[in-house]
Design a protein around this nucleic acid. Structure first.
Lengths: 120, 120
DNA sequence: CGTATCAATTGACAAACGTCGATTGAACTG
DNA sequence: CAGTTCAATCGACGTTTGTCAATTGATACG
């Protein structure tokens, strides 16, 4: 987990032909890249991606007790995945009595979404 | 790494109030979710995300020898990241003599991109 | 031929991950 | 109060990850 950037290739030419013409450089900032990678990583599990999908489509806040039976994993495992999504900011939660309700923070997906859509 | 889906919460009501009104269910198919999670996971590292960014912006095929000096990691580590991106189909490569050239398979990002953009 | 260069592979290692069962803590019920 | 229920946390486990140095394989040069 790092991504320090340098610049400029060396491009030795054995027979005179260069390996390539133009010099290449990154276009996203290091901090942008790190943030988007963090979001992508959180989405990089089928259960977590499905959780985000369910919560996004639902638009309201959804009780954990409704989410657990959707998956074939234990309650503690699902809680772990919810925590992971909350840790990176994709989800937020709210407690009401015994129950906990989760919902999506849509803005948190915007940067990655924009980048993926080809826009710089 | 699994994500088997069931259906229907149980929704016991201690005092008569249900924990929530509507029943929730996943909207993406299991195989879609698995595929998108695979792509997201591959993008879940700052170096790999930056590699995709560089190659996407560049539009032509880029020599590995130009990519290595952009990052503060060893040549073998970068090769490992490139392989990972190629394994999930985001990148393809082509050998010309001593050099190897990588380029983006843009369609491979479309499904995740569309999902992230709010479209089902 | 022997040497040099680029990129992929191997082997090692610590860190992070996904999963579970068991426990804990909080809040409601009777 | 004692008992129940929901969700979070803990402790353990096997697997995967990111990294490096060293090696290998392929190709080019003299």
């Amino acid at each position: 987990m790092s991504s320090e950037l340098k610049l400029m290739p060396k491009q030795k030419s054995p027979n005179g032909q260069p390996c390539c013409e133009p010099v290449v450089y990154p276009d996203v900032e290091r901090t942008q890249a790190a943030n988007m990678a963090k979001i992508a990583k959180a989405l990089g599990d089928p259960i977590r991606l499905t959780l985000v999908d369910v919560l996004r489509k639902h638009a309201g806040k959804v009780c954990v007790c409704e989410l657990v039976p959707l998956f074939d994993v234990s309650q503690s495992t699902l809680s772990h995945h919810l925590k992971k999504l909350r840790d990176v900011g994709i989800l937020d939660s709210e407690r009401r009595g015994l129950w906990a309700y989760y919902y999506v923070n849509p803005e948190e997906l915007d940067e990655l979404s924009a980048w993926l859509s080809g826009g710089s």
